[in-house]
């Protein structure tokens, strides 16, 4: 998943809503026919080479041996358990990052305090650190030779090479998405409405539920979608802490690798196609959210 291709596009602020009317096609904003055609051809060529062809390849490879093989590959017990584990990881990582992301963005956008820039840097850390290092951090902390290793072993608690480790790694790599999405949005909106609420006697929770959250709901949803996509697709960090036990600690991306390494190409691509479908679904949801956000902004302006 790409990191943050369009942090700004989801901002439902007024300058975007009537953008199209302001820059209607005029001589100043359109190029000669040939150049326009060339640019469009380049973009289409690039897109089909780097996106559409690989995507088509995944599905043709997946269905090469027929639909029955495809279905068998994704309903086989090991595949099902990897799907289940992927969902578990996402189901825990997304709500956690939702809560922490809102809290962090709220604190950063609405208040001034010492160490604010350090906090922002910390939130960005998972983007800066290679996922492999993220996984190794947990091995160093919870591994048998790590800080808590022997205590955990004595108390029969498994963290790495088990589900908790995979969840931890997923939470770590997806940590910035919600906060990164909300901070610019909240900063752009300012705190006038909250202050008005406060003056009128609203409690803190009322301000949060009635003012702050409704104002950022589309940005928030967008962050959640990105978090979910990354949590389900993460390979590197999860690979380090997984232990690769078939049917127990393999997520979808790891299961694809195993199948591929076992000469089971049709099955590998069948499972990969599930991830591709997930990506497509993410894109559709993302476009829907952006469209909704823009529409809301337009309506607000009219009102």
């Amino acid at each position: 998943m790409s990191i943050s291709p369009s942090i700004t596009t989801a901002i439902p602020s007024s300058q975007y809503s009537n953008y199209q009317a302001k820059v209607a096609r005029s001589r100043a904003t359109s190029e000669p026919f040939l150049i326009r055609w060339l640019l469009i051809a380049t973009v289409l060529g690039f897109l089909s080479l780097f996106l559409i062809v690989p995507l088509a390849a995944v599905f043709t490879e997946a269905l090469r041996k027929g639909f029955a093989v495809y279905l068998a590959a994704i309903t086989e017990p090991d595949a099902l358990s990897s799907i289940k584990l992927t969902f578990i990881a996402a189901l825990i990582a997304v709500p956690l990052n939702l809560v922490f992301g809102i809290a962090a963005a709220w604190a950063i956008a609405k208040f001034d305090f010492r160490g604010k820039s350090i906090l922002i840097t910390l939130i960005d850390l998972p983007f800066a650190v290679s996922p492999v290092i993220a996984g190794l951090i947990y091995v160093l902390i919870f591994g048998l030779q790590g800080w808590f290793g022997s205590t955990l072993l004595d108390n029969d608690i498994k963290v790495i090479f088990a589900i908790p480790g995979i969840v931890l790694a997923s939470v770590f790599v997806t940590f910035p998405f919600v906060a990164r999405e909300l901070i610019p949005l909240m900063q752009a909106q300012g705190k006038d409405e909250e202050e008005a609420g406060l003056v009128l006697g609203a409690t803190g929770w009322q301000i949060l539920w009635r003012i702050t959250l409704p104002n950022v709901k589309w940005g928030l949803l967008y962050g959640v979608i990105l978090t979910n996509a990354r949590a389900m697709g993460e390979f590197g960090a999860v690979s380090v802490v997984s232990g690769h036990i078939r049917g127990l600690t393999n997520t979808l991306p790891l299961h694809v690798e195993i199948l591929y390494n076992e000469y089971n190409y049709a099955a590998a691509f069948a499972v990969a196609s599930l991830l591709a479908l997930l990506a497509l679904l993410t894109l559709v949801l993302k476009s829907f959210v952006e469209w909704k956000a823009a529409r809301d902004a337009r309506l607000n302006e009219l009102a």
């Binding site: 030779q145 955990l152 498994k158």
Partner: peptide
């Protein structure tokens, strides 16, 4: 249950607590 990978990497995982 099976876990497969490069031999040195697998030894490392067991040392790190892959039970």
């Amino acid at each position: 249950n099976q876990s497969h990978g490069g031999s040195g990497k697998q030894a490392r995982a067991v040392i790190d607590g892959l039970q």
